[in-house]
Every structure is written in C-alpha cells, then in structure tokens.
Amino acid sequence: MTASPAPAQTPKAKSHIEDSLILRPFRLIGRTVLGGFREIGRIASFSGRVLIAAVTPVIYLREVLRQCLKIGYYSLPVVGLTAVFIGAALALNIYTGGSRFNAEQFVPAIVVLGITRELGPVLAGLMLAGRVSAGIAAEIGAMRVTEQIDALLTLSAKPERYLYAPRVIAGILTMPLLVLVANIIGVLGGWLVAVGALEFNGSLYIRNTLSFVTANDIWSGLIKAAVFGGIISLMGCYQGDRSKGGAGGVGRAATLAVVGAAVLILASNYILTSIFVRVGL
C-alpha cells in the first residue's frame, strides 16, 4: 500500500488560512470592543429616556412612594447590619495599626471619616446592588417575559414613565437617607468596639467624633449615595427591560444587573472622589 501524496495547497488557500489565523484575534478584539460600545450606547440611551421621564410630568407619586418603601425602608436592616460590622471592624483595624506608632487616639476620627466619605456609601451601594438591583431586574424581567410590559404599551402607558422613572426617583431619594442611617450605625459600631473592647471613654469618643467630622464629609457621602441610588435602579430597570427567554433570561438579567451596578458604583466612586478632592468637598 502506498501513501498518496498530500494535496498541495494553492497560494490563494494558504494565504486565506494565514489571514484567518492572524486576523482572528483582531476580529475577536474588534467585535468585543464594538459590542462594549454598543452596550454603553444602549445604557446611555435608556438612562436618558428614563431620566427625562423622571423629571417631566406626569410623575406617578403613588408608584414613587411604593418604590421608596421597597427600595428604602425594606433595605434598612441589611444596610444597618452592614454598617455596624464595618464600623466595628474599622475601629479594631485602626486601633491595631495606630498602636504601632502610638496613634490610638485617632480611632474615632478615622472611623467617622472612613464611614461617612467612603465605606458608608460604597458598602451600602454594593449591598443594595445585590438586594435592589437584582430585585428590580427580576421583577421587570418577569414582566417582560409574561407580556406585562406589552400590556402596558397597549394601555398607552409608557414603561419609562410608569415602571422605570418611579424606581429611579426612589433610588435617588432613599439611598442618601439609607447612607445617613448607615453613617450613624457605623459610628455606633466603632463606638461599641472602642468602649467595649479597647477601653475608650464613651463620651470622649463621641466628642472626638463630632469635633472631627465636617459637613463636607457628610455631604460628599450623601452626593455619592444619590448617584449610586440612581445607578442601582437604572441598571435593574435596564437589564430587566432587555431580558428575554423565560426564567433563564430573568436570572441572567438579575446577575447582569448586580454585576453592572457594582462595577459602575466602584468606577463612579473613584470619579466622584477625584472631583470632590479637586473642588475641596
């Protein structure tokens, strides 16, 4: 038995193979980048429509109040618990680190600064990204796949106005209030550890905290909170609105909403902090 000779590749076919092998990674990168820009464009367009609906009549106050209750009030336990443990851990860490160069007395100042400017809004934001953004995406996703959003349209109600704007308004309004509560509870967590385990004087701790914290520290945290509240609601609405394909699609929307909201919170936190540092807030 003799082996048949391998068929010779024509120059054209060879060049095609080389082209596809060389170009494949570039095609992949190009497709990914274009897809990313397309997604950013979609999110921007969706956000624009919803924000316009949120600041122009008609605003459905009953829906806004209902969402304030769902997004704000029902999130209090999770935000409160997060804040108390963060405040407590922060106090311990600062005490341990500070004791290396006899700076234990700065625990109240650093705890309040860390919580009001950074940890309060960011951690409350991340917790709400999990609780609220996923909840909104799942609810709206389920409405999408069960034709409830189509039903809204046939009843001449725009989803942007009836469904999304109330959630975004509620997110922007309630998140700063939640962060204010988180700030107080976080400081209280630090105080509990400082007084209970680190032998600080309770009233002196509070006096040091109050004398150190400024209105700017609190305002900067609250402004961040309002922005994060908007991001959380918008991402939930956006992913819910785009979901398709039954239960799997709704689950995917919830996951994407949480991931998207968390990434956007962390990115916008850096941008906002840079702006605040620049303008002296």
Partner: peptide, 19 residues
C-alpha cells in the same frame, strides 16, 4: 396612540399586573 386608545387586547397568559 390613537390605535391603542381605540383597541383592547387580551394576552395569551392574561398579562395581568401582579403588583
């Protein structure tokens, strides 16, 4: 908008708003 004001629709699954 005119069309939707003058039409009604019954969806396959009802599509009632569960909230």
């Amino acid at each position: 908008d005119t069309l939707r004001r003058r039409t009604g629709m019954l969806f396959q699954g009802g599509a009632l708003f569960d909230s």
